[in-house]
């Protein structure tokens, strides 16, 4: 695989699936610092399979996927959580801190309160610092997503990956999440990979889009690929020329 040294995530001719059967194939993608890449497509087309493959949760059936050495910040869908965990907002955010298995280093950091201060900054960033002692389970859907975003930031990532971050949240909450993402991308040069079924959102935010349908992936410029005319053709299963 010819590698792009600046790439945070790179896939070449990758195919992903289950039980040896490919669900999506022909995936070519390079995510560089500052890029904002969307993954879209009809329901059941394999968006989640592609997403899981790119994150390393599925081994590629063909081709290769390379993730850079930098930490990745991950924001899953909020529905996956179990209310049996009595976690506070602050505790959820701390779970995202980079692992320090070397005890002395970890102890030293704890003594210096460095991690605590950074967690406060992350919560501040998403506008939830005043809720830090609230039970995570008591928050609204949009607030939970923002807490999970703060948790992802705790890893000091160069690449943020988000799975349907605005799914099931109200418009104001979705706007707040998008505002934070834009800010992170603009001010810190964070790359963002986002899977969403909300096409207007992707068209407004993303620079490039991977369109997944019937096991194939089309990669192109977001504005061109997600224009109303292109979408008509994409939903009809046609190929659209929209170079990224």
């Amino acid at each position: 695989m010819s590698t792009d040294e600046a790439a945070l995530l790179e896939a070449r001719g990758a195919a992903f699936g289950y039980g040896g059967r490919a669900i999506v194939q022909g995936v070519d993608l390079v995510v560089r610092p500052g890029a904002l890449v969307g993954i879209a497509g009809p329901n059941g087309a394999g968006k989640t399979t592609l997403f899981r493959g790119l994150l390393g949760l599925l081994k590629p059936l063909a081709g290769e996927v390379r993730r850079g050495p930098h930490p990745i910040g991950y924001v899953p869908q909020r529905e996956v959580y179990d209310a049996v965990f009595p976690l506070t907002v602050e505790e959820v955010v701390h779970l995202g801190a980079a692992p320090h298995f070397r005890g002395v280093q970890r102890f030293w950091r704890a003594l210096g309160h460095e991690e605590h201060e950074f967690a406060c900054r992350c919560l501040d960033r998403v506008g939830l610092h005043d809720q830090r002692r609230a039970p995570f389970a008591s928050l609204s859907g949009g607030q939970r997503q923002r807490v999970l975003l703060a948790r992802a930031l705790m890893a000091r990532p160069r690449l943020l990956v988000l799975d349907e971050p605005t799914s099931g949240v109200d418009r104001a909450a979705a706007a707040k999440i998008l505002e934070v993402l834009r800010d992170l991308q603009a001010r810190e040069g964070l790359a963002v990979l986002i899977v969403s079924h909300e096409l207007p959102l992707l068209r407004a935010m993303a620079q490039e889009v991977l369109w997944v349908a019937e096991g194939r992936v089309q990669h192109g410029d977001a504005e061109a690929l997600l224009s109303p005319e292109s979408l008509d053709r994409l939903f009809a299963g046609e190929t659209v020329e929209a170079h990224a």
Binding site: L55, G56, L57, P71, I72, G73, Y74, P76, V80, Y81, D82, F85, L87, H94, L95, G96, A97, P99, G103, R151, A155, V161
Partner: peptide, 22 residues
């Protein structure tokens, strides 16, 4: 005590633990 956070993360959100290379 030493691994409490990692053990909680794996129980709470295994997928996030995998993605973040725990």
């Amino acid at each position: 005590v030493v691994f409490q956070r990692e053990l909680v993360l794996v129980a709470f959100d295994r997928e996030a633990a995998l993605v973040t290379r725990r």
